[in-house]
Simulated scan of single mutants.
Amino acid sequence: MEDLPARFAEHLIRDRRRSIHTVRAYRATAQRLVDFLQDHLGMPVGRAELAGLTPADLRALLARRRGEGLSNASAARELSAARAFLEWGSGASGVPMLRGPRVRKGVPRAVAPHEAVALAEEVAEGAAEPWIGQRDWALLLLLYGAGLRIGEALGLTGAVLPLGETIRVTGKRDRQRIVPLIPPVRSALDAYLAAVPWPIDRESPLFRGQRGGPLSAGVVRAKVRAARGALGLPHRTTPHALRHSFATHLLGRGADLRALQELLGHASLSSTQIYTAVDAAHLLDVYRHAHPRG
């Protein structure tokens, strides 16, 4: 019997160019669906069985997953991954029509500019070695000053050197975009590059770990978590929140939505439009705190 989840993962990597995290999550969903159907049907599951899947079967899988504590948002993602697997395995006509759970769309909360700088300073000052402090300072300023995802920043290599007024960033699904480097970010990067104790060639990661290997996103998140605790900042203050702040503050200063879409690397304008809600939420906060009848 064909290993459908493994073949599906290969398809996602080769044909869809999905990230390793997406592939891992989608493959796990595909494996859960196959295991569930084998138990449910009492027989091995191939493409024919996938094509015969009914809405009731898919609903039964989601019910089991919800019983394991899955939230609405996670259940919606599970359903989306299952549909992608079924569409690949049995064709579009074999995907049962099933409405997913209703998910309330959250509005990203921005970090104030002084909080972003204080966070970067706290992380840098807590570093074990001076060059590591310069690395952390440069990295967090890059997230806030250029709107990069943490994975995009850590994926930069020496190919971006020598630094100019812009850098080329590779985002989701290998989409590339040009991002401006404002002077404070470029200065921080220059200081880090002058201090890092390892040579950086075109293939080497730009941001190095303590022993010279690639810097881990988990290390960065742990440092930010400790710093926000020391500063009394809310739990929403994460490396990704710095990207939200970049977008929110640009929009608040009058940036064009299309230009912001390009800077963030969003494939769809609808992904960028959420920041109009962020700006409206900020205005409401100001109103409620300032208006005597608020």
Rank of each mutant, 00 (worst) to 15 (best):
A290L: 13
E87F: 10
R65S: 04
L215H: 05
G171I: 12
E165Q: 11
M97G: 11
D256F: 12
A112F: 08
L242T: 00
R17L: 13
L119V: 08
F85W: 05
P183C: 02
T157Q: 11
F207S: 03
G94D: 05
R177Q: 01
H289L: 13
L98W: 02
R175K: 15
G212C: 10
M43K: 15
F36W: 06
G42H: 14
A138F: 09
G212L: 08
A73H: 12
R225E: 14
L181Y: 00
D285G: 13
H244K: 12
A290M: 12
A128T: 12
L37M: 13
D190E: 15
R211E: 14
A290R: 14
R17I: 09
L50W: 01
L206G: 11
A277D: 15
L53M: 15
L283W: 11
G69S: 12
L53F: 03
H240V: 04
S216W: 13
Q261V: 05
R211H: 14
G218F: 09
R16A: 02
L156S: 11
T54H: 08
G229I: 04
A281I: 08
T237V: 15
R288I: 11
K105M: 06
A267G: 10
L12V: 11
A222I: 07
A110R: 10
V219L: 15
S74N: 07
L143P: 08
H21W: 01
A191M: 01
P44K: 10
A92P: 05
W198E: 03
A76N: 08
V34R: 03
G294Y: 15
A112V: 05
R24H: 14
E121T: 10
R7L: 10
R66F: 09
Y144D: 00
A267P: 06
W137N: 00
S204K: 11
R253T: 05
A259I: 14
P44I: 07
L263E: 03
A48C: 06
E115Q: 12
E68V: 12
V185M: 03
I20P: 09
F85Q: 05
I200M: 12
E125C: 10
G147K: 00
L215K: 02
A290S: 15
R186C: 00
P130A: 04
D279P: 01
E122T: 08
L61W: 02
G126H: 09
L257D: 06
D15K: 08
G42D: 14
V23R: 05
L257M: 10
S187Y: 00
R258Y: 09
R202V: 14
L41W: 13
R32S: 07
L260K: 03
S19M: 11
S19G: 10
A241I: 03
L264C: 01
I132S: 02
T237S: 09
D190M: 13
H291E: 10
H235W: 13
H235E: 15
R64D: 07
R109Y: 05
A267V: 11
I274K: 04
A222D: 15
L233F: 02
L37G: 07
P96L: 04
A195S: 14
V95G: 00
T22P: 04
A153Y: 01
V107M: 05
L154C: 13
Q176P: 03
A84M: 13
L250E: 10
L119K: 11
G94I: 00
G158C: 08
L231Q: 06
A146D: 06
I150H: 02
H282E: 14
P55F: 07
